[in-house]
Design a protein around this nucleic acid. Structure first.
Lengths: 342, 342
DNA sequence: TTTAGCACTCTTTATTAATGAGTGCTAAAT
DNA sequence: ATTTAGCACTCATTAATAAAGAGTGCTAAA
C-alpha cells in the first residue's frame, strides 16, 4: 500500500512527464508548490516507487519516467477528471447545432473534432446495428445492359452497386423481381437476407421468371456488401507532433498500423461497452507498445452501438482525453437517439 | 547548345542522383561503363554545366546535384521512355480483369496501384462530367417524420441525404412530389437542376400540393450536393520513404498539403489535358518546392474527364512515372469508355 | 584537347574533455 | 525515527579538436 506522500509524488511525476516528455528529477519535483519536503526525501520515495515498479530510470543517473504499471495505477487511482473549457464544449456542441441530418456526416465530424480537441489521432467506428433491417430494395436501369441496385436500411443507410445483365432480361423482368424482393425482404434483418433470399425468394423466382439464375447471383452480391461499418479518422498526422514519433521509422510503423483498416476495425470491435483504456503493451500489438488507446461507446436507441477512440502516445493526457471521450460519447448517444431512433 | 558529351554527362548525373539521392562526383562518373573520358575532363564539363545552370553544388567541394532547370531539361530532352515489366503490366490489367462494375472502385484501386507501382503518392480525381444527368429521383420514408432522398445519375453515381419533415406532410404528398420531380427533371443535366426546380417545378407544386415550401427547400438541398468529384489517394505514407522527408517538419508540411483536399482539387483541376510535369517551384506553392507533380488525364466517352497524378520528390523517377501514368490513363480511357459510355 | 597531379575545401566521423543534471548513500539535524 | 544536507559518482549532452575522405579547380604535361 502506498503512503499519501508516495501517491502525491507518483502523481506529480506522471503529470510532469506527460506535460514535458522529459524524465523527472528530484530537484525539480521539490520546487513544485504542492511539495513541501526536500529533494533527498523525494529521492528516497522515488527509490521505493521504483522498487514497486511504478517508475523507471532511463539510465543509472537519470530522472524517473512512468512505467506501464505506473500509468495503469495513475489511470485507475490518481486521475482527477478534467474540466472541459467552455470553448471546447462549444466545439462539441457545434456537431449537433447545425442541422445536419446525415448520420454519416455527424460521425465523421466527430472524428475531426475529437482530434482537434486532443491533438491525437481520433478513430470513430460508425454505428453497427445488431438489427439493421432492409427498408427498400430498388433497381434503376441506366441503359439496356447496366443498372444500379440500391438498398436502403431502416437507419437510412444506403448501399449501391452497379451491375450489368444479359440482354435476355427485360425491364419487366427486373420490375417483377424488385417487387418480389421488396414484398419478401422488407424489414428482414440484413444478416438474414442471404438465407431468406436463397430459401424463400428463390422459389418465387422460379415460378414467375425465366433466366433468374444470373440475376439471383447479382442480387446476392449486392446484398452482401454492407459487411461492417465504416471507420472515420481524424488527425492522422497528429502523431507526428509527438516527440516519441520524431523518428520516421517509428512514425511509419504506427502509420501502417493506422492505415490497416481491417486491423483497426477488429481492434475497436472487441472493445467492451463504455470507457476503456489500454496502455502500451496491453494492446497486445507490437507496433502499439508505445501507444495508448482509449475507447468509448455510444449508442443510438437500444440497437445500434458505435465506438469513438483516441490513439496517442503512452504519455497521453489521460485525464483530458477520458473527459472528452466521456462527454462526446454521451452527447452522441443523446442526440443521435433523439434524431434517429425509430 | 550543349555538346553530345555534355548531354551524356548531364543525363548520367541526373540518373545517378535520382537513384542514390547523393551528390554525384567526377570520379564516380568516370567509372561508369558508358563514359570513356577522365574525371578531369568531366570536371571541366561539369563546371560548364554549372555555369549554364543545369547542375549545382551543395558546398564548394561537393559533387553536383541537378538544379530545377536541370530536371526540366532532363524531362524535356533526355528522357528515354521506360519499359514497363510484365509484372507491372499485369498489376495494371488486374484493375479491369476482375469484373468490378463499380466505377468508384476502379478509380479508387487505380490510386492504390499507382502508388504501389511508383512508391510515391498517387492522387486520382474521379471523372467530372460536363453533362451528368439525373436518371431518377427517389424518396424512401423511414418513419413518420424522416426519409432519405436518393438521386441516381446516368453514370450510375448515387447521392443521398436524410431529411426530416413536419407531420403535416403525408406520404401521398411525398409520392406526388416524387412523380412530379421525375417527370420534369429526368435527363436534366445536374447543373441545371436548381434553376429548373425553382422555375418550372415550383409552379406544379403550387397546383398540386399544400405546404410545399418546406419540401422544396429540402429537395433543393439534396440536389445541391454533388459539388465536385471525389479525390482518391494511394500511398500517402510513401512520402516518408523518401530521404528528403526524413525530417519530420518537412513531412508535416507536405502532409498538410496533401490532406487539404480542396487545395489539391483546385490544383488538379487546372491541369491541362494529357500528360503534364510540374517540377518544384513550377507548382507555385511554397510547400511543394521540393516536390514534383505529374498528371495525366483519362476520359470516359466524350463527356467525362478525370485526372490521375503522382506526387513525389523533385528527385523523382520521371521516366518510370511518366510511362506508368501514360499507360494507365490510356487503359482507363479505353476500358471505362467501353464499360460506362452510354 | 585531354589528362595526370596536386593543393585546397568542406563534410563526416571519431576522440577527448568539460559541463551539468541527477542519483545513492552517509551522517547530521529535527 | 524521519528528514535533510552534503558529497562522490554516473551518464548524457555539448563543444572542441583532429583525422580521414570525397570532391573540386587549376596547372602543366601528354
Amino acid at each position: 500500500m502506498l503512503t499519501e506522500r508516495q501517491l502525491l509524488i507518483l502523481q506529480v511525476i506522471i503529470d510532469e512527464f506527460i506535460r514535458y516528455a522529459q524524465p523527472v528529477g528530484s530537484r525539480s519535483l521539490a520546487k513544485k508548490a504542492n511539495i513541501s519536503f526536500s529533494s533527498a526525501t523525494i529521492r528516497n520515495e522515488m527509490a521505493d516507487l521504483e522498487e514497486l515498479g511504478f517508475i523507471e530510470k532511463t539510465h543509472t543517473s537519470s530522472g524517473r519516467v512512468p512505467s506501464e504499471k505506473g500509468y495503469r495505477f495513475y489511470v485507475d487511482h490518481l486521475l482527477s477528471p478534467e474540466m472541459i473549457s467552455q470553448q471546447d464544449l462549444d466545439k462539441i456542441r457545434s456537431l449537433f447545432t447545425e442541422r445536419i441530418y446525415e448520420l454519416e456526416k455527424i460521425i465523421q465530424n466527430s472524428a475531426k473534432i475529437l482530434s482537434d480537441l486532443t491533438e491525437y489521432t481520433a478513430i470513430v467506428l460508425g454505428p453497427t446495428a445488431k438489427e439493421n433491417r432492409l427498408k427498400r430494395f430498388q433497381i434503376v436501369p441506366l441503359n439496356d445492359d447496366t443498372a444500379v441496385a440500391i438498398i436502403v436500411t431502416n437507419t437510412g443507410h444506403i448501399e449501391h452497386k452497379l451491375f450489368s445483365f444479359p440482354g435476355t432480361i427485360t425491364r419487366s423482368d427486373i420490375e417483377k423481381m424488385v417487387n418480389i424482393l421488396n414484398s419478401r425482404l422488407k424489414d428482414v434483418p440484413l444478416i438474414r437476407l442471404r438465407e431468406k433470399l436463397f430459401h424463400e425468394v428463390v422459389t418465387l423466382f422460379k415460378h414467375h421468371m425465366e433466366n433468374y439464375e444470373y440475376l439471383l447471383q447479382t442480387i446476392a452480391d449486392v446484398l452482401n456488401i454492407n459487411q461492417h461499418e465504416k471507420l472515420y479518422y481524424g488527425g492522422k498526422m497528429n502523431m507526428l507532433k509527438q516527440p516519441e514519433f520524431r523518428d520516421v521509422e517509428k512514425a511509419q510503423e504506427i502509420f501502417s498500423l493506422i492505415e490497416d483498416e481491417d486491423g483497426v476495425y477488429q481492434l475497436l470491435r472487441k472493445m467492451p461497452f463504455g470507457l476503456n483504456v489500454k496502455i502500451g503493451s496491453e494492446n497486445r500489438i507490437q507496433a502499439m507498445e508505445d501507444c495508448s488507446l482509449i475507447t468509448a461507446t455510444y449508442s443510438i436507441g437500444d440497437d445500434q452501438v458505435g465506438t469513438i477512440a483516441i490513439l496517442g502516445p503512452k504519455r497521453m493526457q489521460y485525464s483530458r482525453v477520458i473527459s472528452v471521450l466521456n462527454l462526446l460519447s454521451k452527447q452522441l448517444t443523446d442526440s443521435l437517439s433523439r434524431l434517429y431512433d425509430s
